[in-house]
């Protein structure tokens, strides 16, 4: 729970920076490192509650889950529609170390084999955005925010 609150706190300035226009990049990159370490922590924690889909703290918003095994992507793949402004939680579980990257929103998170990595954000930018594995180059899904 503490980890999740920390994660939201780390992401808040980031989503604000996303629509603000002229923030220093240092601030943004600092926020995204914080987000990725927070995501890593929440993913790698031995608390099983972090991996369960319906935690009460995130009742609102949309939860999108994807699994990657042997290069095959399963779960909520393809084109995933999201209403504009909705809080979104992306959960990715993979079998290889990699880095998650959500284009446009420019969010990243470390992916540790076997442990779910999370990206939480408010879908405030309209458009179609790819979520990809940075090293493998695999597109996991495309987020359609409208």
């Amino acid at each position: 729970m503490r980890a999740r609150r920390l994660l939201v706190a780390a992401l808040l300035p980031l989503t604000l920076a996303g629509c603000a226009g002229t923030d220093a990049p240092e601030q943004e990159s600092a926020a995204s490192t914080a987000a990725s370490t927070a995501a890593e922590r929440s993913g790698s924690g031995d608390d099983p509650a972090t991996a369960s889909p319906a935690a009460p703290a995130e009742a609102a918003g949309q939860r999108i889950e994807v699994q990657v095994a042997g290069g095959q992507v399963t779960g909520d793949t393809g084109r995933v529609p999201v209403p504009l402004g909705e809080p979104v939680t992306l959960v990715v579980t993979g079998d290889a170390a990699d880095e998650l990257h959500l284009h446009g929103y420019d969010l990243t998170a470390e992916l540790v084999p076997g442990q779910p990595a999370e990206l939480q954000f408010d879908a405030t930018i309209p458009g179609v955005f790819e979520l990809e594995l940075h090293d493998a180059g695999t597109v996991l899904l495309t987020l359609q925010v409208s």
Partner: peptide, 12 residues
């Protein structure tokens, strides 16, 4: 260099 890309500059 410090500017952040504003992807909401033009509405859908």
């Amino acid at each position: 260099y410090g500017n952040v890309l504003d992807l909401a500059a033009v509405s859908p």
